[in-house]
């Protein structure tokens, strides 16, 4: 097995708002090996982007990281490195913006494809120049060398070279997304965090870009975290997956384990609510109610108000994370009992 590249331990990121706190990410733990792709999946507002930005410490200024959180990348704890204890809020740490050590990691070792990358390029500069600039900022190369590299990257992601000197508005949505991928690859990082990389695109373009990403990931042995609300994108792309619900990781495991030997009631419900073009057409089952407000999450299990298996204890106590099989985790009071019983597709 390859080396562990990223070890996220008990990461909690909360946002300070006037009325109190938004518990956006709570006690999240997972590991990622070199060259591995993980899908981070969940509904809108469940904390996916906050988790991604928590890794690179690029959070909003009202974000605080709870004491005890660790983000260990290649042996180095980012939390220790780039945060200081908050004087205003004991028990929390504040991110030091533009931390010089942290900046050395961003782009060079970890790059990001931002959610809504369609608008990530500055409209007044040529796209190619923006990528060249990023290379020049981080590496000691000549402009000519940087340009050569951009040409090669364009070829890799499938944009004609003669489009390097176009402005962002001259690109289609799919081309901007590809250029963003080129930018993410430009410094040959160890990890790419891709936040909804294809959500705004048509399926045909999505398919091509995902294919491109999978190929580049394999060829360069770069690890990837793909953040998406679409479980089918995860099924297609990821070796392992983490399912997020209301700020918690409720299930983590290999993609096969999570889909085929589902161990958490939320994942089961998600699969039953998701339409597919494959197989027989079955009546979908909606999940009753809606996700909780993270400024005011329910006590106990955050899924309890919507869970068909909920018992009294679920309303009172936060469930532990249980390892139901090697590398397969479920945050549920009844994980052991339900494991093997839940109707993942294969179990029906």
């Amino acid at each position: 097995m390859a080396k562990v590249l990223l070890d996220v331990k008990n990461l909690s990121v909360h946002y300070k708002i006037q009325a109190g706190w938004v518990y956006a990410v709570d006690d999240v733990s997972f590991t990622l090996h070199r060259g591995e792709t993980m899908g981070l999946v969940g509904e809108s507002g469940c904390g996916k982007t906050t988790t991604g930005y928590g890794i690179t410490q690029l959070l909003a200024s009202n974000a605080y990281i709870k004491e005890g959180s660790k983000v260990i990348f290649d042996g180095k704890d980012f939390v220790e490195m780039s945060t200081v204890p908050s004087k205003k809020f004991p028990g929390y740490r504040r991110i030091v913006e533009y931390h010089p050590e942290m900046r050395k990691y961003r782009w060079k070792r970890i790059s990001m494809i931002f959610q809504g990358a369609m608008n990530a390029f500055n409209p007044v500069f040529k796209v190619g120049d923006q990528i060249i600039e990023a290379i020049l900022t981080h590496e000691n190369v000549t402009e000519e060398e940087a340009r050569k590299r951009v040409e090669r990257l364009y070829e890799l992601v499938g944009i004609p070279k003669d489009r390097i000197d176009n402005y962002p508005h001259e690109y289609s949505g799919g081309m901007k997304q590809r250029a963003m991928i080129a930018m993410a690859l430009a410094l040959n990082p160890d990890l790419i965090i891709a936040d909804e990389p294809t959500t705004a695109l048509d399926v045909v373009t999505q398919d091509k870009i995902l294919g491109e990403m999978a190929r580049l990931q394999k060829e360069n042995n770069v690890a990837m975290i793909i953040i998406t609300h679409d479980v089918s994108v995860v099924a297609e792309m990821a070796h392992k997956m983490a399912v997020m619900y209301a700020g918690h990781l409720v299930e983590v495991g290999s993609t096969r384990q999570v889909f085929k030997e589902t161990a958490h009631p939320y994942m089961e419900a998600l699969l039953k609510a998701f339409p597919s073009i494959k197989g027989e057409k079955k009546r979908l089952k909606a999940i009753p109610g809606s996700p909780p407000d993270l400024a005011n999450p329910p006590k106990g299990c955050r899924f309890a108000p919507r869970c068909p298996y909920a018992k009294d204890i679920c309303l009172e106590e936060e469930p532990p994370v249980v390892e139901v099989a090697p590398g397969h985790f479920s945050k549920c009071h009844f994980a052991e009992e339900l494991y093997g019983e839940l109707g993942g597709e294969a179990n029906e």
Partner: peptide
Amino acid sequence: KALISAVPVPDPDHKHGRVEIKGEI
């Protein structure tokens, strides 16, 4: 054919071919 082969399927065992049409609409 291309449109349908591009649709991702929520099943990790499903392997689909890649779309073979060029360019964008």
